[in-house]
Amino acid sequence: MTTVATPPAAVETLAPKRKPRQKTGPGSIFKYLLALIFLIIVLMPMYVLIVTSFKSGADIGVTSQWNLPETWTLASWEKAWNVLRPSFIRTFELAVPVAIISSLIGAANGFVLSRWRFPGADVVFTLILFGMFIPYQAVMIPLREIVTTLGIPPGITTLVFVHCVYGIPICTLIFRNYYATTVPEELIEAARVDGAGLLRTFGRIILPISIPGFVVTIIWQFTSAWNDYLFAIFLSNTRNGPITIALNALAGAQSPDYAASMAGALITSLPTLLVYVLLGRWFIGGLMAGSVKS
């Protein structure tokens, strides 16, 4: 049996190439140092917020804002929770329906506008997108007049309707891009050959593969509705409004309790933080899924 010698050049070609070791030079050290400085600057207000929320009234002052509490107490958290608890529950009743309803409407609009090229589709899409560029401040007084004229009582129901309407343009844009660039045309054609109509194709085939788009729109709409203050101040009050109204009442008293205000701010931001922590890993992927053709 004859053994064929492998040329040295072939051996070098077959051998796995080692990645060149990156050198840590002064430029890299400077970038990491600069990032660390920016991180500290960003986290400084959060440090003051958390530390102050555990202080008693005697420990709070301009000169002692960076100091740790001499006595750690949860009294401010209990006070803030007692004030914010009713509006906390009402805000979930606002943000959850807004996120779901506007996402479903945006998904339906996006599917029709991306796959059903009816006459005037581009004009309809342009008119829908026009709603994204109308500032809230420009419609507040007319919107309040319409709600008053129609006899719609202020509160969570009115805010759900308004946020769903304002959320349709951005949800439609996200889903239209997602369906146009990610969902293959062959999938739609196969459903059409099997006798599925537009609604059945959307419900049985398109919705199950639309999770990345729904993650993006749900995070966006939930956060927008939860953090809204402008619509809330015009269309609700402290008795039937969301948590932003109650937080403003807690922090805007004549003798403000700074520790309770800090605790209330942390309680208010906790749900949106949890949403980003739980769904954030799919957020960027969902955005990119509708931006690049496969």
Rank of each mutant, 00 (worst) to 15 (best):
F214H: 02
G252L: 10
D257L: 10
G264A: 11
P208R: 02
I218W: 06
W226L: 11
A251I: 13
V216P: 09
G213H: 06
I233Y: 07
G252S: 11
T244D: 03
A225M: 12
G213A: 12
P208W: 03
A225Y: 09
G241D: 11
A260E: 13
N248T: 10
G241Q: 08
D257K: 06
F234C: 04
W220P: 00
M262S: 15
A246R: 04
I243R: 01
P242N: 11
V216W: 11
S261Q: 09
I245Y: 08
A265H: 01
A265Y: 02
T244C: 10
L207C: 06
A253N: 09
Y258H: 08
L250D: 13
I243E: 12
P242M: 11
N240G: 10
S261I: 03
A263N: 08
I233P: 00
W226I: 09
I219R: 03
I243C: 12
G264D: 10
V215P: 02
I206K: 00
L235K: 01
W220A: 13
S224G: 13
A225F: 09
F234E: 03
T238Y: 12
N248H: 08
L266Y: 01
P256H: 10
I209S: 12
V216Y: 09
T268V: 15
I245F: 08
G213I: 08
F234K: 02
Y258L: 15
S255C: 00
S210G: 04
D228M: 09
S236V: 07
N227W: 01
A225K: 05
P212G: 12
N237R: 05
Y258Q: 13
S236P: 06
T244Y: 02
G264K: 01
I211Q: 08
F231Q: 06
L266P: 01
T268N: 11
N227Q: 09
G252P: 07
A259P: 03
P242W: 06
I206A: 08
V215M: 10
W226A: 10
I245W: 04
L207V: 15
S261L: 08
P212Y: 05
F222H: 05
P242H: 02
I218C: 15
A265W: 00
Q221G: 03
F214G: 01
G264Q: 06
V215A: 14
D228H: 07
L266I: 15
G213V: 05
I219P: 00
P208V: 07
G241M: 12
A253D: 09
V216S: 10
A246G: 03
A225G: 08
I245N: 01
L247P: 02
A232D: 06
V215L: 07
F222D: 02
Q254G: 02
D228K: 05
A259Y: 04
I209A: 11
L266E: 12
N248F: 13
I211F: 14
I245M: 13
P208G: 05
A225D: 09
T223K: 11
G241H: 07
G264H: 02
P208I: 09
S210V: 04
D257W: 04
V216G: 10
P256K: 12
L230P: 00
A251K: 07
Q254D: 14
I218N: 05
I243P: 10
A225R: 07
S255F: 14
V216I: 11
A251W: 00
I211H: 05
I209W: 01
W226Y: 10
F234Y: 15
A232T: 02
T217K: 10
W226M: 12
A225E: 07
A265F: 03
A249N: 13
F234Q: 14
N237T: 14
G264E: 11
W226E: 01
A253T: 15
N248Y: 13
I218T: 14
